[in-house]
Design a protein around this nucleic acid. Structure first.
Ligand SMILES: [Mn+2]
Ligand SMILES: [Mn+2]
Ligand SMILES: [Zn+2]
Ligand SMILES: [Zn+2]
Lengths: 141, 141
DNA sequence: GAAGTTTTTAGACTATATCTAATCTGAGAT
DNA sequence: ATCTCAGATTAGATATAGTCTAAAAACTTC
């Protein structure tokens, strides 16, 4: 995604394309690695213009509300964010904590009736275990 | 699960059955509601013996390591815990944040090859949307 | 370019979790 | 029964994550 597209995305969602907001969105589209707010704050502050911590949090909140960014549900201390792109599932490594993308495939919904009156908007599938690196290391260790 | 069973579970996992640790485990087995550490701390301190905050966190960590308790992956501030019982999936309400259990059913694994060298230990399926209460309220509102 | 709105900012504040070092407890050894 | 000592608990300090405030800056509209 290039700069013009990011600008269009933001303005199409009713958000001004400020340099700070653009920087957050650009970082998330360039680096698909489920970054924490702290990592994003640090990354956007390595380039001008700088962004305060509050603004980084504010912009992440705005981008999530606008549906351009998703907060990934993982246990642990800091929330993690990713730009919404193609649908996919997640793999979380027990050992190193890395969150990796898995190719999307359809997941069966719960059997009729067991949902009751609930209204489903989306589903998220998370696998846990050892990532490639950690699996190899523990096999050879 | 009664007191004797909890004691057996703890000792079978190499954990002493201290009053504080027992109280955490008993609360989680009695109340299946994905409690935060703060809620657990408060609950075990409504009955004797009392437990410090550090001990509540220590015991939750020990119980998770021993495989008797699971930290549920949800976005938001505080980690949530549940006693490991029968397998199930989760439903998280967009509006009120409640985490509810859904009946278990098998989820297809990723297609061969797309996992690479990763080793899968478990999978978790999370649905999001409106819970029964919030769905009714928003329909009639 | 004046007026009004949104955004940014530094730093205070709140919430959540971990660490530290002293003390206590209890199960096995004697 | 008493000793012993690893394991457990404690209060409080510290660390980390996130939110709030009030003032200034940036932008939009007139
Ligand atoms: Mn992802
Ligand atoms: Mn559950
Ligand atoms: Zn790993
Ligand atoms: Zn609800």
């Amino acid at each position: 995604m290039d700069a013009a597209e990011i600008r269009q995305f933001l303005e199409g969602s009713g958000l001004r394309c400020t340099p700070q907001r653009f920087a957050v969105m650009a970082f998330l589209t360039e680096h698909n690695r489920h970054a924490t707010a702290a990592e994003i704050f640090e990354a956007v502050n390595r380039v001008d213009p700088r962004s305060s911590r509050a603004t980084t949090y504010n912009n992440l909140r705005d981008l999530v509300q606008a549906g351009l960014v998703r907060e990934v549900a993982v246990e642990g201390r800091g929330a993690r964010f990713e730009a919404i792109g193609v649908p996919h599932h997640h793999f979380v490594c027990d050992h190193c904590g890395n969150v990796e993308d898995l190719e999307w495939y359809d997941v069966p919904k719960p059997a009729g009736g067991s949902l009751g009156k609930r209204v489903v908007r989306e589903c998220e599938l998370i696998f846990r275990g050892l990532c490639s690196n950690c699996a190899q290391r523990s096999a050879s260790g």
